[in-house]
C-alpha cells in the first residue's frame, strides 16, 4: 500500500481522520510547511463545499447567540503569539515523534495500532530526531495525581528540554486549558498551556528545567494564568 503521510492532507482537510490520526497528523503539520500550505488550500476548497450546504438557521438561534456573547469572554491572543508558541513546541517536539514517545514508553495502544497500519509514518519519524534523542537521553518521570491516566514527563537536563506525554487525558472543560508548571525553589513557574483531544496529549515545557524539583499540571482558565489556581492534577519529581 502506498502510504505516505503527505497523502493524508486531503483526508485531514475533510476531517476524515480519526482523532488519533488527526493528532498525529497535526504534529506532522507543525514541522511540514509543504503539508501546512497544502492543507490550507484544501480547507478553502472544503469550505466551499460547506457553503454550498447553506440553510436557514432556526429563528431562535440568533437571539440566543447574541445574548450569549454578552456574557462570553473572549480569549486573549496566545501569549507570545501563535508563531512563537509553535516554534517553541517545534523546537523540542518534532511532531510525529510524539507518537514515537508514546510508542517508546508503551503508553498508547491506539497509537501503536495506527502505526502498524502506517508503516511509512515510522520512516518519517526516523527523520525527526529531536524527541527521539530526548527519549534516548533516558530521563523519564511518571506523573501521578488526581487524574488516573498514564502520563510521563520525558526530559534531558543537558539540553534543558522536556515533554509531557499523557494518554487518555480528557479534554479540558469548556473555556479551560491544562497548564504545565515547573516547580523551582517551591515556586511554580508557568511552562505553557496545552489541550487534549481525549486520547494523546503532549506538552513541551517552555520554561527552563534548570534546578527544577518538580513538574505539575493544573486546569486553568483558557489562555493560562500566571500562578496556578486549580488543584494539582498530575505531578512528578525530577
Amino acid at each position: 500500500m502506498s502510504d505516505n503521510i503527505h497523502l493524508l492532507a486531503g483526508a485531514y482537510a475533510l476531517d476524515a481522520l480519526t482523532i488519533d490520526e488527526r493528532a498525529l497528523y497535526e504534529r506532522h503539520l507543525s514541522v511540514c510547511e509543504a503539508c501546512r500550505l497544502e492543507v490550507a488550500e484544501y480547507a478553502e476548497t472544503a469550505a466551499e463545499l460547506g457553503v454550498a450546504a447553506a440553510a436557514n438557521a432556526p429563528a431562535g438561534l440568533r437571539a440566543r447567540v447574541l445574548t450569549e456573547i454578552e456574557r462570553t469572554r473572549q480569549v486573549s491572543a496566545t501569549p507570545g503569539g501563535p508563531a512563537s508558541l509553535s516554534r517553541r513546541v517545534q523546537r523540542v517536539l518534532t511532531p510525529v515523534a510524539a507518537g514515537l514517545v508514546a510508542l517508546v514508553i508503551g503508553l498508547s495502544g491506539a497509537v501503536a495500532v495506527l502505526w502498524q497500519d502506517n508503516q511509512r509514518l515510522e520512516a518519517t519519524v526516523a527523520e525527526e530526531r529531536g524527541l527521539a534523542e530526548l527519549v534516548a537521553a533516558g530521563h523519564s518521570v511518571t506523573m501521578t495525581g488526581q487524574i488516573d491516566v498514564p502520563a510521563t514527563f520525558v526530559y534531558d537536563p543537558d539540553r534543558d528540554e522536556g515533554v509531557l506525554v499523557a494518554t487518555g487525558l480528557s479534554a479540558p472543560a469548556e473555556g479551560m486549558t491544562y497548564q504545565l508548571w515547573v516547580i523551582r525553589d517551591g515556586q511554580p513557574v508557568d511552562a505553557g498551556v496545552f489541550g487534549s483531544d481525549g486520547r494523546l496529549a503532549t506538552a513541551t515545557a517552555s520554561e527552563s528545567l534548570h534546578e527544577a524539583e518538580q513538574v505539575a499540571v493544573t486546569m486553568e482558565p483558557a489562555g493560562g494564568v500566571d500562578q496556578p489556581t486549580g488543584e494539582i492534577l498530575l505531578s512528578g519529581d525530577l
Partner: peptide, 27 residues
C-alpha cells in the same frame, strides 16, 4: 450555537495569513 460562540470567543486567534475567514469558520 457552540461554533458561532466559539467564533466570538476565539476571534483574537484568527490569523488571516493562514487562510480566509470563511475557511476558518467552516473548518
Amino acid at each position: 450555537q457552540e461554533v458561532l460562540l466559539e467564533v466570538w470567543r476565539t476571534a483574537t486567534r484568527f490569523d488571516a495569513e493562514r487562510g480566509s475567514a470563511n475557511a476558518w469558520i467552516m473548518t
